[in-house]
């Protein structure tokens, strides 16, 4: 098992839901509740040292439930290693704590996920639309949003 998964299972035994491997990519699925603590642990523990957040991807698995997920792609410059940290979110009002306090770069990634997928990041200092106009209605990357306009 990946050492990051071992670390999380040791430190947050109730939070880790699943660890999957696909084509060499390790994905650790965690509960959304303590995401900030988990990210801090992954960043600060010297055995994994994930000091770099590559990106945050928001995914809509409609019609599955839970419907939404956020994926954090983390990279370690020390070990040249990468993992994906994934948390599934509630269908009706997807919300998760902001990790801007862990990585400054999370700022725009979270705003983008909010803008296009409608996921709220609690504690984000400036959570407003970033690519679309402020008065835009709807979240384009959700599956019910049409591919083409009328």
């Amino acid at each position: 098992m990946h050492k990051a998964a071992e670390l999380l299972q040791e430190k947050f035994p109730d939070e880790v839901v699943e660890v999957t491997e696909f084509r060499g990519d390790t994905t650790i699925v965690v509960k959304p509740g303590r995401i900030v603590d988990i990210c801090k642990a992954l960043r600060d523990d010297s055995s994994v040292s994930f000091k770099y957040l590559s990106m945050i991807a928001a995914i809509d698995y409609h019609p599955a439930s839970p419907r939404f997920a956020v994926v954090y792609s983390l990279y370690s410059h020390r070990y040249h290693d990468r993992i994906a940290l994934k948390a599934f979110l509630d269908d009706a009002a997807p919300v998760i704590d902001s990790v801007t306090s862990v990585w400054s770069t999370a700022d725009w990634h979270e705003r983008e996920a909010y803008d296009l997928m409608g996921i709220k990041f609690k504690g984000h200092p400036n959570l407003k639309r970033i690519l679309l106009p402020q008065e835009w209605k709807g979240f384009p990357l959700r599956k019910e949003y049409p591919q083409r306009g009328e």
Binding site: F22, R23, S54, M55, V71, S73, R82
Partner: peptide, 15 residues
């Protein structure tokens, strides 16, 4: 299937 792949683009990590 879900994958992430990043390359060294001229402007940095593109994934």
């Amino acid at each position: 299937g879900e994958v992430y792949h990043a390359i060294e683009a001229p402007k940095g990590e593109m994934g």
